[in-house]
Write a protein that binds this DNA or RNA. Structure first.
Lengths: 205, 205
DNA sequence: GTAAAAAGCGAATAAGTAGTCGCTTACAAG
DNA sequence: CTTGTAAGCGACTACTTATTCGCTTTTTAC
């Protein structure tokens, strides 16, 4: 009895009590999803973890997927906030240092939230495109694109911008994720250094 | 009512008829898993697709996961066969060409079986380590390791072999997978060329 | 042909699932 | 205090799932 993905919204919380309930639902859902994955996170289990009745879930969320999406949205906002600050900082100094700092910050963030990261990596395909995370990635990519276009003559001549961007973005993204989820015996700082080396060597003349 | 993962084996097929039944189960399971993913592939659906009764599934497989594992094992064997031939060929010529040919073959193989690849990427975590694929990856990695150790003086001095191996393996592996699953607008040959460039630049002086 | 073994069947079981609904409790305004 | 509304409850529904088991059919060996 699943419902259509974009199902009708429910009641909007108006009192303080209910706003706290929604918070508790999201906290509990985050916890249960992190610990037991999508399938293991039944609505009953989420309700129990939140200390409320299963029926109360459905007053604010039309279905299970809406809860998951809300959890991930909140997580994406958190990432955007934290990386946003880093982006500001990175724009002021020399680009190599800025890029490295950004990379460092991203991996550190991923390390802090590896359980949710795993959830996203595994469950994104079934939830469709994840707007907020995509937007964040586009934001980062656009910075790189501008930089590439402005400094084109410092780089390889045969460099097609879109292809290069894709390779760069996925190299950094995928390797960061793999690093955090698989925990190979490479220290954090070393990983940042190697990843920087990898991408810098790829684009320079 | 799931069962412990390493559940007791069932009857071993002895007649031709039953051996064909097992084949049909695996074929059907491959099809259903590719089309509907792990969750969508119920045992009843697999049985129906195989044209047999659900009860008959359980004569050769102790539970659903055993079927999935058997499908993936068979797939890993297929990959190992095909890549094995390429590895032989790659060992005879110059290494750059060999490496590129291997990469080309791997991406082509992935493209042929992108549905199963997606299944593996998404479901491997819940099925535990995937011995046969891991073995194949180790085989490829060992070749690279030997090459790296033999030609150490042709490469960066600060290169730690294990770290480099990890970066190389995951770069090639993850980007190939992402390329096949996301289908960015980059032609196959271009992708092979860029990926080669990326890794060659990373290790050379 | 006959009997034993192998293979196959499918209704039934037991446990879960997402989601609902009539009811009760808590709150806020007059 | 009363009354309308927001919030919360939890047993219940409709359904799906993996797995079982007593039975029938097919094959093999003699």
């Amino acid at each position: 009895m699943p419902r259509p993905p974009g199902a009708s919204p429910r009641r909007i919380p108006q009192q303080d009590r209910s706003r706290r309930t929604v918070e508790r639902i999201l906290d509990a859902a985050t916890r249960v999803l992190s610990e037991r994955g999508y399938e293991g996170a039944s609505t009953n289990r989420i309700a129990e973890a939140a200390g409320i009745s299963n029926g109360s879930l459905y007053q604010y969320f039309p279905n299970k997927d809406a809860i998951v999406v809300a959890v991930l949205d909140r997580f994406a906002d958190h990432l955007a906030d934290r990386l946003g600050a880093e982006i500001e900082a990175a724009m002021t100094g020399p680009w190599e240092a800025g890029g490295r700092a950004l990379l460092d910050a991203q991996i550190r963030l991923f390390e802090e939230h590896s359980d949710l990261l795993r959830l996203i990596v595994e469950q994104i395909p079934r939830l469709g495109p994840f707007d907020k995370l995509d937007a964040l990635q586009r934001r980062l990519i656009d910075i790189v694109r501008v930089y590439l276009l402005l400094n084109r003559d410092g780089f390889r001549e045969d460099l097609d911008v879109d292809t290069t961007i894709w390779i760069l973005a996925e190299t950094v993204g995928q390797l960061s994720i793999k690093y955090v989820l698989d925990r190979p015996p490479i220290p954090h700082d070393r990983m940042v250094a190697e990843l920087s080396e990898l991408v810098i060597r790829y684009i320079r003349k």
